[in-house]
Nucleic acid binder design. Structure first.
Length: 674
RNA sequence: GCGCCCGUAGCUCAGAUGGAUAGAGCAUUAGCCUCCGGAGCUAAGGGUCGGGGGUUCGAAUCCCUCCGGGCGCGCCA
């Protein structure tokens, strides 16, 4: 509700100033620090004062007096040195907020532009840890935000099933465990120990084993080669192991309500010869060229920036200064960035090739995750969705990969795809580390130097980190204990389900409340907290609101229907909106809550524009906090004045709807009881 | 060396496009259950916004510089 009015105010001011003073200014608006100063403020007169060489307050007075009526605005006042403070029509805002609540989401149409969001992308050779969860939760939440904003979104999870990480685990099965493919299959089938956990340890072992004797790297090279060629027992084991671990990752993500549309596997990128097609394009359009001299001689390189023409001119460029990015090595193999350029050409529908697809996984909500498959069917017909062909691409990848992401963008640009390059966005976030205390708790060796740092990095390679499912288990256990302490009357199924909702809410909120550029120093104490700025705090506010209706319905079943009607803004018991409750000086408390509840849309807009899910998380918490104050101050059920009670109930219904919407955007469910 | 990010209360973090008295949570202290659920509420203490310059009517926010920390810059992925 808020943002349309804000927009009208901005437009009216811009237009008015142009007409009256012949000045074209960018009108900025903001929230005044106090509710007594109105709901929208503009310091535009300060800017105008400079240009017109007149006192800002005087200009403000003129504008306030001559500006016509703006829909939704009650009046404009002048404050301070020349602020324009806008006061909204409170009753109208409240009515509009109630009517709009719960249906702010914009409908997606089949022909609206498509965005691809890639997230998760965990190497399929070990269990997921909490750093991977941050990626997946940010990505999944961003998808929800885009869809809410009416965007058609395809979620992709890139699976690097041919890289060294997988080769290492295969090496471990062979060198340490001496297991055949059949024995590995049996091990995975047993699920005891969990296969991904088993590989977690095995991977760490291989890392040490390789470090002991450099000659062993030769063995790894052979394994990799066999995997890439895609035939033989080694390739078969790699396929089995990576697929099996991918399944465990999907089960982990299912616990957090995270769905995918397509799992794009590197093995198919190779098999479908995406690179060959991309390489041809790159050569044809002069985006890459063969270096003939200098230290990159024999490589196909992509010039970057203005350093591009400096090939060979004296090795002066110095150590570590890349004048051009190597795309194809002198031995003829393609680098990671090269493959990524090919994959992104496909994402934008610029590559004249497509994958084949097969169903891979059914999420608990029934949604099907497809995977690329050699023996699969073509996309876009016969029940197979049309994948790829996006107008816009968002990649959720940690901030360390900023440079390679830039190279991919430059690659598109060098091919002449300026438009697509501009619509390739890297959603960068910083890593999750462990506090030194946490690392010690987990039994990892922490050097004296590390102990002084704010965090210790996690490393799958070293087998160091908090495994996602371990954390979730711990949180569910903790939540269950809290539920048990409060609700002895719940059935077992109910207790488990509520505990799960709480654990999931706590974890998702924990990972979302930090802005993307913050390094999270993980600590069990913070993550396991259900009090203060947490998911369960917000869930609890919803449960409280719901309990009011339950209580009322116990006495009079008619309240159930009343609630549904009120939630839709329908007048129930009294036709008049008691505006005096909002407009009286003592109505500011109510009004602040109404205003905040009506600001979900503007928060979502800001969140999408900044690609910052944390904004919505903060909003949900603030709304819950204000509601808790309201709840504490006003006893609704015992309210004697029926007009006031009606108002309080409608406000409660409004807040509940908005809280549930905000939580849904965050991927957090609001339980009925907790 | 070059590039990017960060430095805000004891701790962990918010402060979009420069705006009015810099905010939360945790922790600490003191209160609040004859009353819709205490996973809650009220209050208190706690700040040279890393330091110093500059731009501006106005700077936590923009520019310069220094200090402290992190991450990139590979014929790895």
């Amino acid at each position: 509700m808020y943002q349309p009015i804000e927009k009208r105010v901005r437009e009216a001011l811009t237009e008015h100033i142009r007409a009256k003073y012949g000045e074209s200014v960018n009108v900025v608006t903001e929230r005044p620090p106090k509710i007594e100063m109105g709901e929208i403020a503009s310091p535009v007169c300060f800017e105008l004062a400079k240009r017109l060489k007149r006192a800002p307050r005087q200009i403000a007075q003129e504008i306030a007096a001559s500006l016509g009526k703006i829909e939704g605005v009650e009046r404009i006042e002048i404050a301070g040195g020349g602020y324009l403070n806008v006061f909204l029509e409170r009753g109208a805002f409240f009515r509009a907020a109630c009517e709009g609540a719960g249906r702010e989401a914009v409908a997606v149409t089949a022909n609206s532009p498509k965005a691809i969001v890639e997230h998760t992308a965990i190497n399929p050779n070990k269990a997921a840890h909490i750093g991977h969860l941050r990626n997946a939760v940010i990505g999944d939440t961003f998808v929800r935000l885009l869809r809410h904003a009416g965007r058609r979104v395809e979620v992709q999870n890139y699976i690097d099933n041919t890289g060294v990480q997988v080769a290492d685990v295969i090496l471990g099965f062979r060198e340490r465990d001496k297991l055949s493919l059949e024995q590995v299959r049996a091990l995975a089938a047993k699920q005891q120990p969990r296969f991904d956990y088993y590989c977690w340890d095995l991977y760490a072992w291989v890392t040490l084993w390789l470090a002991e004797d450099k000659a062993r790297l030769e063995l790894r090279g052979q394994v990799m080669k066999e995997i890439e060629e895609g035939r033989g027992a080694v390739a078969e084991m790699a396929e089995f192991v990576s697929t099996e671990i991918l399944r465990t990752h999907l089960r982990t993500m299912d616990r957090l309500g995270i769905d995918y549309d397509l799992l794009s596997r590197e093995s198919e990128v190779l098999a479908m010869k995406f690179w060959d097609a991309a390489f041809r394009m790159l050569k044809e359009r002069g985006a890459v060229r063969l270096a003939t001299s200098g230290k990159q001689a024999g490589c196909w390189i992509m010039p970057l920036g203005d350093a591009g023409d400096a090939e060979g001119d004296a090795g002066m460029a110095g150590e570590g200064v890349a004048e051009a990015k190597i795309i194809v090595r002198s031995n003829g193999t393609v680098t990671y960035v090269g493959k990524d350029i090919a994959y992104h050409l496909w994402k934008f529908g610029l590559l004249e090739r497509d994958f084949r697809y097969a169903k891979f996984h059914e999420h608990p909500d029934g949604h099907i995750a497809w995977a690329t498959a050699l023996e699969g069917r073509s996309g876009g017909s016969d029940g197979v969705p049309a994948f790829g062909n996006a107008q816009e691409v968002f990649n959720v990848i940690d901030s360390r990969q900023k440079y390679p992401q830039q190279v991919v963008r430059e690659g598109l640009r060098a091919l002449g795809f300026e438009e697509q390059a501009n619509h390739l966005t890297h959603i960068a976030y910083d890593v999750v580390g462990l506090t030194p205390r946490c690392a010690v708790e987990l039994g990892y060796t922490v050097t004296d130097e590390d102990a002084k740092r704010p965090y210790v990095e996690m490393s799958g390679r070293k087998g160091q980190g908090v495994k996602a499912d371990d954390l979730l288990d711990e949180m569910e256990k903790h939540a269950l204990a809290e539920v048990d302490a409060r609700h002895r009357d719940f059935s077992d199924a109910e207790r488990t389900s509520v505990a799960h909702a709480i654990a999931m809410g706590a974890l998702r909120y924990f990972l979302l409340k930090y802005t993307r550029s913050t390094i999270i120093a993980f600590d069990f104490k913070d993550a396991l907290s259900f009090e203060g700025e947490t998911g369960p705090y917000v869930q609890y506010a919803v449960v409280r609101a719901r309990s009011i209706w339950k209580k009322l319905a116990e006495a009079n079943p008619g309240w159930e229907a009343a609630k549904a009607a009120m939630a839709k803004g329908v007048e129930v018991f009294h036709t008049a909106v008691p505006e005096q409750l909002l407009t009286a000086p003592e109505g500011n408390g109510f009004w602040e809550l109404v205003l905040l509840a009506g600001s979900l849309g503007s928060q979502v807009d800001a969140s999408v524009a900044a690609q910052e899910p944390a904004f919505v998380a903060k909003y949900a918490f603030q709304l819950a906090q204000q509601f808790n104050m309201f709840y504490h101050k006003h006893h609704i059920i015992s309210e004697q004045d029926p007009v006031k009670q009606n108002f309080l109930l409608r406000l409660t219904a409004l807040v509940e709807t908005q809280l549930v919407s905000a939580l849904k955007l965050l991927g957090i469910e609001a339980p009925e009881k907790m």
